[in-house]
Design a protein around this nucleic acid. Structure first.
Length: 505
RNA sequence: GGCCCGUUCGUCUAGGGGUUAGGACGUUAGAUUUUCAUUCUAGAAACAGGGGUUCGAUUCCCCUACGGGCUACCA
């Protein structure tokens, strides 16, 4: 590893929402940068004008913000290597492509899409490369005057790299070790498209060079095109500055096989995107972890431990701890099937771990979205502390806490009615009388007098505890019933008993 | 089809020439909680197969199988 400043980039295409794998790539870049006191750069790879989606870039930035993966340089916070959108760097790339043509490492190709499609269909294993390029329409096969004329007439054309014959291209991947490719198997990839935009292959090399990227993390799906990039770094004369590569294992479908995709989310009932993504064209909403009720702390944590561990048995880390412990040689090589159950466990752990104060904004939103009115933040905080250990996702706070703010609208009558007796009605009327003179309702006091009264009336405590809970909560859940009563206060407790007594009749 | 990458409980993983192959999620059983959840305890559960190398391989090498990725003027 060289001693040059660590600079890494996350380079997504703005084609839609950000998928788990994308966020993890961003996260690993970020963790590596922080660990090595380097810079983390966000570069938008919008070279495909057909796939460009309005709003996708803003979404990506929001998403990184939500996760706390903040770029040091980005399109909206540019550094000295601006611009950070490849579409705005269009003019830069042609020069390098032309230079390669001049040097004989690339050539102009005039074939139409139809011609190429035909070849692919008719010739088994067709690839635009050393075997077939002489029979195709390009500056290697055509006479010079014809090429000149085609260019002069502005005939649509691309620039392709000329992959050399009979060479072995190899490099050391930081995750996989030595990886080799035979150039005879590599095709002449397009570098510059007919519209003047570079393809990924050219753009990634040129920009990584110009932006002084030291380490390049990307998904394993890029491994097969690595030889093209290696060759380009060499031909452009930048070999000494080439970043170290790290091809990350893929995140796979939990069932069946293959790379996790957007469709799997809908099919298997869990999100694949970090945040909700609304596609204006199709009107389709793809759900996200954030809106489902994940905490960013949990989301980042679960992503980091998907294919990485710190060598100990610890699993819960915040982002700073992750950055501190991060190391590439602890990244696993094999793809990981995504397990939503474990993802939920991480969230539950984080809800338990953080202070109630941290949850206030999120919980308030959950409740207010359900029309629960909150006018006392301290009361809300007390409620959160009392119930957060029983919540897995943020929306669980509604079911677990709504009754602290509003009288139950419905009761689980099956739990009380079958065993309901006149004696119990008497008992609760007596409880009301007992509560009336109370100044402040203290949980422990109520509990002892409640039990004493039950005994006095010849009832088993257990026979009246559940009805009491149903009266206050509406259902068979929640914290200790006397704590609930104490929080509700004397008046509201009496009110709920009276109301429920009518319903239980 | 071709090329590349990979393979430890159902899942995420630790480990590594001699281990009772460890942890976590999930699951099962029990305890606590006169509700539910939390918590705690215990249990079931894995080195893909075949050849080498070696005194000894789950660990190193090779082959096979299986899985994944790529094979666009998409990234």
């Amino acid at each position: 590893m060289s001693d040059k400043k660590v600079r890494v980039r996350f380079a997504p295409s703005p084609t839609g929402g950000l998928h788990l794998g994308g966020v993890r790539t961003a996260l690993f870049n970020y963790l590596f940068a922080k660990k090595n006191k380097g810079d983390f750069i966000l570069r938008i790879e919008d070279t495909d004008q057909n796939r460009y989606v309005e709003g996708a870039e803003a979404y990506i930035i929001d998403c990184l913000n939500w996760c706390g993966i903040i770029p040091d340089e980005s399109p909206v916070t540019p550094g000295q290597y601006a611009p950070y959108r490849q579409s705005e760097r269009k003019s830069i790339y042609r020069e390098y492509a032309e230079r390669l043509v001049m040097q004989g490492h690339a050539y102009y190709a005039f074939d139409t899409a139809e011609e190429l499609d035909k070849n692919r269909k008719e010739i088994p294993n067709f690839q635009y490369g050393q075997v077939y390029r002489d029979g195709l329409r390009n500056s290697l096969s055509l006479p010079q005057h014809e090429v000149d004329q085609l260019l002069a007439e502005h005939t649509p054309h691309v620039i392709r790299i000329k992959i050399p014959a009979d060479q072995t291209v190899s490099f050391t991947d930081m995750i996989r070790g030595r990886v080799s490719f035979e150039t005879n198997q590599v095709d002449d990839k397009v570098l510059l498209k007919a519209d003047g935009m570079p393809t990924y292959h050219l753009a990634v090399v040129v920009d990584d060079y110009l932006m002084k990227i030291s380490h390049a993390f990307r998904g394993e799906e890029w491994l097969p095109s690595a030889p093209v990039h290696l060759l380009l770094w060499d031909y452009l004369g930048w070999k000494a500055d080439m970043p170290q590569w790290a091809h990350l294992p893929l995140i796979l479908k939990p069932d069946g096989h293959g790379k996790l995709s957007k469709r799997d989310g809908a099919r298997l009932g869990f999100p694949v995107y970090a945040m909700n993504w609304f596609d204006a064209k199709t009107g389709e909403l793809t759900p996200g972890f954030r809106e489902l009720g994940f905490l960013p702390e949990a989301f980042v944590n679960l992503l980091a431990t998907l294919g990485w561990n710190d060598g100990s048995e610890r699993e819960i880390f915040n982002i700073d701890e992750l950055a501190d412990k991060f190391s590439i040689d602890r990244i696993s090589k094999a793809g990981a099937k995504f397990d939503f159950e474990k993802a939920k466990w991480f969230n539950a752990e984080w809800i338990k771990k953080v202070k109630g104060e941290r949850l206030k904004v999120e919980v308030k939103k959950v409740l207010e979205d359900k029309d629960v009115i909150i006018n006392d933040d301290d009361y809300l905080l007390t409620v959160i502390e009392l119930i957060k250990d029983r919540c897995t996702l943020l929306p669980d706070f509604y079911q677990q806490s709504a009754y602290f703010f509003q009288t139950p609208a419905e009761y689980d009558l099956n739990a009380v009615k079958p065993k309901w007796t006149e004696e119990k009605t008497d008992f609760f009327n007596a409880i009301i009388e007992l509560l009336k003179p109370t100044e402040v309702l203290v949980a422990a006091d109520l509990e002892s007098s409640f039990k004493a009264l039950a005994e006095e009336k010849g009832l088993k405590t257990g026979d009246v505890m559940l009805p009491f809970r149903i009266m206050l909560v509406g259902g068979k859940f929640g914290p200790h019933v006397f704590d609930i009563a104490a929080l509700l206060g004397k008046d509201e407790t009496i009110n709920r008993i009276e109301k429920a007594l009518v319903a239980f009749k």
